[in-house]
């Protein structure tokens, strides 16, 4: 397996007028991963993706896909990419099949058999010859996935793919993406502002705010997760006094939160009870990515 990054963003900036939308973004996306791109609305996720697929010009820097520059070798670079940029818009007056045929004609080596295979993968066999205007949003999303993977791209780019999908649609999409990453080795780059969604889908998450990359972290590094993200919560009758007694911790919603291991938790429990403080509940709480994200982005102000 080569570990050359599939996508290489090198000091990418985008300025429109005097406004800097993306500021010197450098990011490598390793192959075979589901890579999340997280940020509040207006952080520059969509702009970055549009530069990645050549829909927008890059003001400074360059983006390489499989070693080919999207600006200088567009046709080579883009042939490795399948994408859904925001909602999958289709030709409504054509049938689903005609839409796929349209995109199949534009990529070399997509056979009729491949089209049938993809239709089956996304489960649209029953309705593929109906006009797209009769499709539900979920079906359009499936068709969107189908057009994106027709030519077996090495990189699949999805911009806010779960927007407007119902929970079942989201789950389906998630399972397609996992399947693609695991079975076909496709690298998937997916943007979202839905943090919980990213936690369920991604191997790695890059966090962007106001056009700047502020963090990249792995979500499958279990030790780091265990140490960094877990706290022990005590629900007690008098949290203030409990904190004084223990000499550490933070109070949240009349609960006391502590960074401790299980043995210490038992000892603290004993001390609290002996001091006459009632302990109603002890639980380990996991700090979600969402909490971390809000911490990182300072509550997500759009500036």
């Amino acid at each position: 397996m080569d570990l050359e990054p599939v996508v290489r963003m090198k000091g990418v900036s985008k300025r429109i007028g005097s406004k800097t939308i993306i500021d010197n973004l450098t990011l490598d996306i390793p192959p075979g991963q589901v890579y999340g791109f997280l940020g509040p609305n207006g952080a520059g996720k969509t702009t970055t993706i549009r530069m990645m697929v050549g829909l927008m010009a890059i003001t400074a820097g360059d983006i390489e896909i499989q070693g080919a520059s999207i600006t200088k070798q567009f046709e080579t670079a883009i042939s490795h990419v399948g994408a859904i940029v925001e909602n999958p818009e289709m030709y409504k007056f054509l049938s689903g099949y005609q839409n796929l045929l349209h995109y199949a004609r534009m990529s070399p080596g997509v056979s009729k058999q491949r089209i049938a295979e993809v239709i089956e993968l996304v489960g649209l066999q029953q309705r593929i010859h109906d006009k797209v205007k009769t499709y539900s949003l979920g079906m359009r999303q499936r068709l969107g996935v189908a057009q994106a993977i027709l030519h077996r791209p090495k990189l699949l780019v999805l911009d806010e793919p779960t927007n407007g999908l119902d929970p079942q649609g989201i789950r389906e999409l998630r399972s397609y993406l996992r399947q693609l990453a695991e079975e076909e080795g496709t690298t998937i780059f997916v943007s979202s502002h839905l943090l919980s969604e990213m936690e369920l889908m991604c191997d790695t998450v890059a966090v962007i705010q106001q056009g700047r990359l502020i963090d990249v972290r792995s979500l499958h590094d279990q030790d780091a997760v265990a140490n960094e993200q877990k706290k022990t919560m005590f629900e007690v009758s008098d949290p203030e006094r409990a904190r004084e007694l223990i000499g550490q911790g933070q109070i949240m919603d009349s609960h006391l939160l502590l960074d401790i291991d299980r043995d210490t938790a038992a000892a603290i429990n004993e001390r609290l009870v002996l001091s006459g403080i009632s302990v109603y509940r002890i639980a380990v709480v996991t700090r979600t990515l969402e909490d971390q994200f809000i911490e990182l982005t300072g509550g997500g102000q759009i500036g």
Binding site: G54, V85, P88
Partner: peptide, 10 residues
């Protein structure tokens, strides 16, 4: 909105 899908072909 199909321009986005049309222009990302080789």
């Amino acid at each position: 909105g199909t321009i986005k899908l049309l222009l990302i072909r080789p």
